[in-house]
Structure formats: structure tokens, C-alpha cells
Simulated scan of single mutants.
Amino acid sequence: MRNKRGIATALAVALGLGAASAVRTAPDEAAQKSFDSADVDGDGKVSWEEYRNRMLHVFHQMDHNGDGRLTPDETPPAKDKSGQPVKGGTVTIEAFSASIEKLFKAADADGDGVLDPDEWVGAPRKSGK
């Protein structure tokens, strides 16, 4: 359970730092900038490779000591759905990678293997299918 909370915390932090906006409405300026930064080839879509690279970049930025793990001292405080503080656990890069793959697939509403701007904005709120 502790590791799952840590993964959730890491994902929330990574998403908040630039992978998507938590707003479900049309993309705002910050979400668009985030989308554009992940859309490396400029085709108006974010592929799994572009998404993974963006998320791993954020992971590595957070991993201050470069050991391939995010520890509670490397992640900002997080809160659960009720607003209560959650103590994070250690998250390995392998667990993080598996979690972002599930998140990408859940956000890809039309199943075409890429995220368009609307799917990007909804990514953090989508549930697995």
C-alpha cells in the first residue's frame, strides 16, 4: 500500500509539473505549453514515446541524488482525495514507468496510440479501462 501511494504521489507531482492540467475544460495556456513541450515533432499529437520521455525527464529532475528512486524527501507533499496529507513512499523508476504507461493508455480515450490536446488535459483524471 505504501508503494502505491508513493507511485500515486510521484504521478501527481509529475503531471502537475508539466504533463497535463488537472482542469477538464478546454486546454488553457499552461496546459497548451505543456502539451507543446511534449509534442517534440510538432504534429499536434503526443505519442507514447514523447509522453514517456517527458514523464521520465520529470522523474529524473525530481531524483536529486540520481539513484533511480524517488524518496519522500525528493517529492513535494501530497494530499489524498479528502485533502488529508499523504506520506509518500519510495518509487523506483520501474514502478513509475509502469504507472505512466497505464495512465497514458487510460488517457488515450479513442485508443489511437497518441494523445490529442483534449486527451492531454484529461490525462490526470482518467481512470483505467
Score class of each variant (00 low, 15 high):
1 M>W: 08
2 R>Y: 05
3 N>E: 15
5 R>T: 05
5 R>H: 12
8 A>H: 07
10 A>N: 04
10 A>R: 03
13 V>T: 15
14 A>S: 15
14 A>E: 06
15 L>V: 08
15 L>K: 07
18 G>P: 05
21 S>E: 03
21 S>Q: 07
23 V>H: 06
26 A>W: 06
26 A>I: 00
26 A>T: 06
26 A>F: 11
27 P>T: 12
28 D>F: 00
31 A>L: 02
32 Q>V: 00
32 Q>D: 03
32 Q>G: 03
37 S>I: 01
38 A>N: 04
38 A>L: 11
39 D>R: 07
40 V>D: 10
41 D>N: 15
43 D>Y: 04
43 D>P: 06
44 G>C: 07
44 G>N: 05
46 V>W: 00
50 E>K: 00
51 Y>F: 15
52 R>M: 03
53 N>Y: 02
54 R>K: 12
55 M>V: 04
57 H>T: 13
58 V>F: 00
58 V>G: 01
60 H>F: 10
60 H>Y: 11
61 Q>V: 13
62 M>P: 00
63 D>W: 00
63 D>T: 06
63 D>C: 01
66 G>Y: 04
67 D>M: 10
68 G>E: 03
68 G>W: 05
68 G>L: 05
70 L>H: 02
70 L>Q: 04
72 P>I: 02
73 D>L: 09
75 T>A: 11
75 T>Y: 01
76 P>R: 13
77 P>M: 12
79 K>D: 03
81 K>C: 00
81 K>G: 07
82 S>I: 05
82 S>M: 13
84 Q>K: 14
85 P>G: 07
87 K>V: 12
88 G>H: 09
89 G>S: 14
91 V>T: 15
91 V>Y: 09
91 V>D: 09
93 I>E: 15
93 I>K: 14
94 E>N: 11
94 E>T: 13
94 E>P: 00
96 F>S: 03
96 F>A: 03
97 S>R: 10
97 S>V: 08
99 S>Y: 07
101 E>M: 10
102 K>C: 03
102 K>G: 05
103 L>Q: 14
104 F>G: 08
104 F>V: 08
106 A>E: 09
107 A>E: 09
107 A>S: 15
109 A>E: 09
109 A>H: 10
110 D>R: 13
110 D>M: 07
111 G>D: 08
112 D>Y: 01
112 D>A: 10
113 G>D: 09
116 D>W: 00
118 D>M: 13
118 D>F: 05
119 E>F: 02
119 E>P: 10
120 W>F: 09
121 V>D: 07
121 V>C: 08
124 P>H: 08
124 P>C: 13
124 P>G: 10
127 S>I: 09
